[in-house]
Design a protein around this nucleic acid. Structure first.
Length: 162
DNA sequence: CATGAGATTGTAA
DNA sequence: TTACAATCTCATG
């Protein structure tokens, strides 16, 4: 499992890759700092993936769309999770939906809580914008990377938070 | 406004 | 089958 660090103004993120593509993104300070594999020659394809991922992360931190992404390796994600994540990627910066609204769009009108579960399982925060999903009545809801990050990202996009 | 109960869904163990 | 979770709504002080 190949990985590399993305240095940004908000700290160093870490992106993990498999042969299939980008598999996971970690927030600064949420991962072990490991030395790069000795003598790891990078395939040019992987190099392109790094470039795209890096640009995408920095774009989102500026409140923009991720742009072109490398292939994603969603691993053993369930159909429901893939469905929810696809819906999230369609939400533009600055816009938000409630867990219930996402549930409705996913075909499970009463599955708002299940949507929370799918968001919690999201391996690619920022790129799959689960921070744009709020609770009912404009309440903030939860966030795997910490509520602070959720507020921070929403603020960047100009969304008022309580 | 704060708190609590109950309903409901998808998932992992 | 059981228990849990980044929910929601409704009821009550």
């Amino acid at each position: 499992m190949n990985h590399f660090s993305i240095k940004t103004q908000a700290g160093a993120f870490r992106a993990d890759f498999t042969d299939q593509g980008l598999s996971r993104l970690h927030f600064p300070g949420t991962f072990e700092v490991t030395d790069p594999a000795p003598g790891s020659g990078e395939a040019s394809l992987t190099r392109r993936w790094r470039q795209l991922t890096s640009e995408a992360v920095m774009a989102v931190l500026k409140g923009h769309r991720p742009g072109t992404l490398p292939p994603l390796d969603l691993g053993t994600a369930t159909p429901f999770q893939r469905r929810v994540w696809a819906l999230l990627r369609a939400i533009p910066p600055g816009q938000t939906l409630s867990y219930a609204a996402v549930a409705a769009r996913a075909g499970s009108p009463k599955g708002s809580r299940a949507v929370g579960g799918a968001c919690a399982a999201n391996p690619l925060p920022l790129l799959i914008p689960c921070h744009r999903v709020l609770a009912a009545n404009g309440r903030i809801g939860g966030f795997s990377g910490g509520i602070d990050w959720k507020r921070r990202l929403l603020t960047i996009e100009g969304v008022p938070v309580k």
